[in-house]
Amino acid sequence: MAGPEHSLYRQVILEHARQPRNAERVEPHSHVAEAVNALCGDEAEVTLRLENERIAAIGARVRGCVISQAAASLMTEAVRGLPLAQAARLGGVFRQAIEQGETGALPPELIPLAPLIEVRKHRSRIRCALLAWEAIETMAGETAPGG
């Protein structure tokens, strides 16, 4: 359709959903976690390998809608190279940005995810944008005592 971009399904989101980055399972991996959206049954499985305490490889396999797939793809690109705890913190910042609808002060790693902030106008889709991040938070929570 020629015309203005769709407000929620921006080209960049559609493109990530069509060709998700890092959509393969990481083998061998040091961490794995799943997240399920109980409302719709959509699932994300995230695997990653830490090397020198940083995310050296990450994979997100998603069975879900365009938003959950694109969000997972963008997430994998945003967190690669970061320590796990920092990745989880970034997820928290992203969650807050969606809940408060703020795109102004996004940290540089999250700027590519800015188009997803639009989901705040679609209550039922917020979980979709956060699904893969929940897996990261789970992993970080499991290893939290050590830092």
Binding site: C65, I67, R125, C128
Partner: peptide
């Protein structure tokens, strides 16, 4: 197309 994306549009 995922069902939720259909319903959304």
């Amino acid at each position: 197309v995922h069902p939720h994306d259909v319903a959304e549009v």
